[in-house]
Amino acid sequence: MKQLAYSALLLAALLAGCSGNPSKEAAIEDRGIKAAEAEQMEGVKIVEAARVETQGAARAIPVSEAANKPGAGVNTSGTATQPISSKTTESVQTRGATAASSEVKSLADGKSAADAKSGGVVGGDKSTAAQDASTLPQPDAVPAWGDLKNPENPLSKRRLLFDYDSAAIRDEYRPVLEAHVQFMKANKAAKSILQGHADERGSREYNLALGQRRAESVFNAMSLLGVPEAQMEAVSMGEEKPVAEGHDEEAWQQNRRTEILYQGE
């Protein structure tokens, strides 16, 4: 309990704007190996590898060189699919749009539930944070993989939304974050992919960096709460994977998010 309260204090400090910036070490290098480990886990489902086809496009031969070359135009002889790419696609998996859309609803539920538990008090002060922490599963109820899909469990909440051009974690997500921290601590084999996203406006590359920052914000929060950095990876999908297809603020808000995913899920 004492440890939980301390964790909550740390998180409260983080939410209050103290941006911790721990250096990342112990890089997760070989995703192929991690995938092999993941396969031994319970309930593991490896998604089918993305099929990527490549081929060459020989340039229409410049006139000056043409004399030495028999043909010009398209060369389709080089249909090369690199083994390395199809292998590594198996190692990280996302749930795709289908799972994602059902999460929109449960997230809204999660928000109201969180508000109710904290007695309607929304703030980052110590006592509120500690109170929230007390509602977490007790140590004897070790969070398990099955809880990730149990809508009654805060672990089923996977999506954190962000304000425009912001990577600050909103207060309402404290219970969700803490639940995942407890899960990661209880399941050392669990490896989390924190996947950041941005809305569609503006440059794709800049949005990729914005999504990365949102993923890192969650990474840093979980790291401060004691999750080993080697157990997490922060990546970004930029604006490429919207969950809401509209072109208005309602859709954009849904798309500015970090998803907490688990490898091998």
Partner: peptide, 13 residues
């Protein structure tokens, strides 16, 4: 010839 390789596949993005 269509051959390709991953030149930057570090941790993160």
């Amino acid at each position: 010839d269509g051959s390709r390789r991953a030149v930057a596949r570090f941790r993160g993005s």
